[in-house]
Design a protein around this nucleic acid. Structure first.
Lengths: 101, 101
DNA sequence: AGACCCTATCGTAAATTTACGATGGTAAAA
DNA sequence: TTTTACCATCGTAAATTTACGATAGGGTCT
């Protein structure tokens, strides 16, 4: 943004929905989430094998999904097990449902 | 992207869903779409009045929503009437529904 | 302690996004 | 025909996103 601009105000729901949508706004992240829906859980390495991307890139996408609240990581040495964050997943689901009327 | 990279392949649905999600990935565009859902249609000027953004910025957001297929513009001189593109709206709705299981 | 996995983070580069003001184009109105 | 209204597009700047390789860190196993 050129001008730092008068920090626009949005409702919480609008902000939340846009946030979730943004996290879903990349095909790689859709693939990751679909994978997690099937397997219920998986490790970073599994995804690196499936996706034609560098390990660091996959890790970065996972980080974004985590910061959006859609997934969570559980330490399972020496691996990390990622699962859908069911609570936030349901919130997102509801927001999209409401949005699409 | 640093390396032009081996053009990753995604399924059509994955690509389409990510595309719609990306279009929804900004709160201003959510506000615009909610507005269009209520009014069914509206003019660019109406949105400029509602949103604390420059006219050119609003126009840019509208362009993105249009190129994502979520809205369509109809010439209604001297104004332009924007409406939800119901066909693609339904496609998006279905994709999100399927995705959220 | 040392070697080995697995994964996160850092540094970096290119592309894209978001925002603005200024300009241009189209169609009605004077 | 000139003016006016409405809106898209251009040019530009800053921020963010996407991608990579390299490095670092946490935990096992030897």
């Amino acid at each position: 943004m050129k001008r730092s601009s008068k920090q626009i105000e949005y409702t919480e729901d609008t902000e939340a929905l846009a946030n979730f949508a943004k996290a879903l706004g990349h095909p790689t992240r859709i693939v990751i989430l679909k994978h997690l829906e099937n397997q219920s859980c998986c490790f970073t390495g599994d995804l690196v094998d499936v996706l034609p991307l560098a390990q660091s890139t996959v890790s970065q996408h996972l980080k974004e999904l985590k910061s959006a609240g859609l997934i969570q990581g559980e330490l399972k040495p020496p691996k990390i097990k990622y699962c859908i964050n069911q609570e936030n997943w349901n919130i997102a689901k509801t927001l999209f449902q409401q949005f699409f009327d």
